[in-house]
């Protein structure tokens, strides 16, 4: 059976096979370029504007459900929650008072040591769009994009620790790669003794792996891992995870260490975007210069 050539649209006389070949070559070259480099980010942004209504429509029922459940929750539970929050806040305030004193002391000590004081990082709250990306990768998208000054490589936190970093920025949304993605690694240090290593994602949102620790490394179950700030992506000193398992096998060179992420990677609704404090970099640079001049 012979299918006539210009079936598609009935406008062209180009045979079906040839058109298929041309379009195939086109999409193959798109993939090649996209895999290689970042040249297509503008094209992606244009497409993402076109599909943005779909993302909004899809996440609308979930937002609506949140609103409804808040407005339907009864007075008693609201009062309870309020009381809980108040006591929580009191606790935090007490800790903040100590924090203020400590910060002042820290600055004083740093001045004495002639190094630059740490400046607080700028943050912005972003909401996670209820949209599933590829189920085999640990990624999601958030409702902040180019207009909010988001950039690729920017760090994301939640209330408990580091969540991930920005992998791609579109006009209104951005794609986030979680620290648990198998393609992601965070430079960390053990809070107890400052031991530096790298935490690699496993593809499972409840597990991180620390593959570069030797059998003799001083690490034990329960150790807190904080970001070390090396690598320049994540600000230093934020919790990344807690070691849950250390397996040392006598014949092996490296220990098998598993950590649980501090952030609630699979339960978050809101995350914080962090802008690393520019002033810190500036002042470090100037002090560095001053030292050279001396």
């Amino acid at each position: 059976m012979n299918v006539p050539g210009g079936v598609d649209g009935g406008r062209t006389a180009v045979p079906l096979g040839l058109r298929f070949l041309l379009l195939t070559v086109f999409s193959l070259s798109l993939m090649l370029v996209d895999n290689r480099d970042d040249h297509l980010s503008r094209l992606r942004q244009i497409f993402s504007v076109a599909v943005y209504p779909i993302q909004i429509t899809v996440s609308f029922p979930f937002k609506a459900w949140q609103v409804v459940s808040v407005s339907l929750s009864d007075r008693v539970s609201l009062l309870n929650e309020n009381a809980e929050l108040k006591s929580e806040q009191l606790k935090h305030e007490v800790r903040l008072q100590r924090m203020a004193a400590l910060e002042a002391e820290n600055i004083r000590l740093r001045v004495m040591l002639d190094s630059s004081p740490r400046v607080a990082d700028r943050v912005l709250v972003a909401e996670i769009l209820a949209v599933d990306l590829d189920p085999y990768r640990q990624r999601f998208s958030i409702n902040r994009g180019l207009g909010d000054g988001v950039y690729v490589g920017q760090a994301l936190l939640d209330a408990n620790g580091i969540v991930g970093q920005i992998a791609g920025v579109d006009a209104f949304t951005s794609e986030v790669i979680l620290i648990s993605d198998a393609d992601h690694a965070v430079p960390v240090s053990v809070n107890r003794n400052g031991l530096r290593t790298i935490a690699v994602g496993t593809g499972d949102s409840r597990r991180l792996s620390l593959p570069y620790l030797t059998n003799s490394a001083d690490i034990e179950s329960g150790d807190l891992l904080v970001s070390s700030g090396l690598g320049g992506v994540f600000p230093s000193g934020y919790p990344v995870g807690r070691v849950v398992e250390v397996r040392r096998q006598p014949g092996q060179l490296f220990a098998e260490v598993v950590a649980e992420p501090a952030a609630e990677l699979n339960r978050d609704r809101e995350v914080l975007l962090v802008w690393a404090a520019e002033d810190t970099k500036q002042s470090t640079r100037t002090t560095g210069l001053a030292e050279v001049e001396q």
Partner: peptide, 18 residues
């Protein structure tokens, strides 16, 4: 459109659809 929505390689779903 599917590529953009799912954040996959641009052209991956396009080729499969073709």
């Amino acid at each position: 459109a599917a590529d953009t929505l799912t954040g996959s390689l641009l052209g991956q779903h396009a080729l499969a659809m073709l």
